[in-house]
Simulated scan of single mutants.
Amino acid sequence: MSGRVVAVAKDGEHRFSKQLAREIRVIAGLGVEDDAHQGTTVKHRSRVAIDPAQPNLRQVHLIPSELFVELHRKGFAIQPADLGENITTEAIELLSLPRGTLLRIGADAVLEITGLRNPCVQIDRFRPGLLKAVVGKGPNGEVILRAGVMTIVREGGAIRPGDAIAAKLPPMPHLLLERV
Rank of each mutant, 00 (worst) to 15 (best):
A7F: 03
Q59L: 08
G156V: 12
D35M: 13
A77I: 12
N140V: 06
F126K: 15
L102E: 02
A158Q: 13
A133V: 05
G157A: 12
R25G: 07
I165H: 00
R146C: 04
V26Q: 12
T40G: 14
I123A: 13
I92W: 08
H61E: 09
K18V: 04
L177D: 08
G115M: 05
A166S: 11
T41W: 02
G12Q: 11
E33Y: 13
E178I: 00
T151V: 14
V48C: 08
R45K: 12
K137C: 03
H14V: 06
L62M: 15
A166R: 08
L130W: 07
S46C: 13
R15L: 09
P119E: 10
Q79I: 02
I144M: 14
E112K: 07
T41K: 06
R99H: 08
A28M: 11
G138M: 08
R25F: 09
L67V: 13
A9M: 10
N118Y: 06
A53S: 09
L20D: 05
A81F: 01
A133M: 10
R179V: 09
G141N: 06
T101C: 00
L94Y: 00
T41Y: 04
D163W: 02
P170R: 01
G12F: 05
E70I: 14
D34N: 12
D51V: 13
D34M: 01
S17V: 09
D35G: 15
P139K: 10
V135T: 07
S65H: 11
E33A: 14
E93S: 03
I123L: 14
A81Y: 03
P52V: 08
I123R: 10
E23I: 06
D124S: 13
I105C: 07
G138K: 01
G12I: 08
L71P: 06
I63A: 06
R22S: 12
I63E: 04
T101D: 00
I159A: 03
D82C: 11
K10D: 10
R104Q: 11
G39S: 12
G156Y: 02
L131F: 15
R25E: 10
R127M: 07
A77N: 10
L71Y: 11
V32A: 07
A158V: 12
P128C: 08
I123P: 11
P52T: 07
A36D: 01
L95K: 00
A81T: 08
Q59D: 06
R146M: 04
L97F: 03
A164N: 03
H44M: 06
V60E: 13
A164M: 02
M150S: 09
E142Y: 03
H37S: 11
Q19K: 14
H61P: 14
V180F: 02
I152T: 14
A28G: 09
T89Y: 02
P161W: 02
V42D: 05
K18Y: 09
A49R: 15
A28Q: 07
G39A: 15
R15C: 06
V60P: 09
R15H: 08
R127H: 11
P171R: 01
A91G: 00
G115Q: 08
R179T: 09
V135Q: 07
G148K: 05
R15F: 02
L62Y: 13
V60T: 12
L177S: 05
A107R: 13
